[in-house]
């Protein structure tokens, strides 16, 4: 069993280092439809025909974490929601990427002195792309998505860093 796992790890290494594989990954990062607060409304607007920001980049909106690659945290994270987000993140299959959308997800935003808000989602899960704004315009989110695609292609995401350390 251990040998099999070792072999699997070796295969994963080869796959991750392959540019072709990364290029293919960057072409269809399926996104987890997961709305928290105001930014979720802008995320919905991004998906509508005016911006067409989701399907244009090969992103298919999935309602379950088990079929998704990208998680967009769109809103403030409270102490009560934090374990839930962590679990949702753990349920996603690897490789997985996180976009923190809006001030609240980046640093707590206007609720920085609240007794119940986690100051930034990166205290719970690793974040690849930060999209600032309150809330960010759909164009800003598009830029974040394009950025993430480039990072995946070039192997610069948090996932790749973790793999390189091992």
């Amino acid at each position: 069993m251990a040998v099999a796992l070792l072999k699997l790890d070796a295969i994963r290494d080869i796959v991750d280092k392959n540019y072709l594989v990364r290029w293919m990954r960057s072409k269809s990062p399926w996104v987890f439809t997961f709305g928290l607060a105001c930014c979720a409304i802008e995320f919905m607007a991004t998906g509508t025909p005016r911006f067409d920001g989701v399907e244009r980049f090969g992103m298919l909106a999935r309602a379950t974490p088990r079929q998704a690659d990208v998680m967009i945290v769109s809103g403030w994270v409270t102490n009560r929601m934090a374990p839930v987000i962590k679990r949702l993140y753990e349920q996603m299959p690897e490789p997985k990427y996180v976009i923190a959308m809006g001030e609240c997800a980046i640093s707590g935003g206007p609720w920085y002195d609240s007794y119940n808000v986690v100051g930034g989602v990166d205290k719970i899960i690793p974040v690849d792309v930060y999209v600032p704004g309150c809330p960010p315009r759909p164009e800003a989110l598009l830029y974040g998505i394009v950025k993430l695609r480039r990072m995946i292609r070039e192997g610069k995401t948090r996932y790749d860093e973790e793999r390189r350390k091992k």
């Binding site: 928290l36 607060a37 105001c38 409304i41 809103g75 403030w76 409270t78 009560r80 929601m81 839930v84 206007p110 609720w111 002195d113 609240s114 007794y115 119940n116 808000v117």
Partner: peptide
């Protein structure tokens, strides 16, 4: 309560003018 951020407590530490932009985030 999954989005509870203590709005009413935060408002007690803000000036009257500073609260107006916060209310934008109530019913967004």
């Amino acid at each position: 309560g999954y989005l509870h951020r203590g709005f009413e407590k935060i408002c007690e530490n803000r000036r009257y003018i500073q609260i107006t932009p916060l209310t934008d985030k109530l019913d967004y």
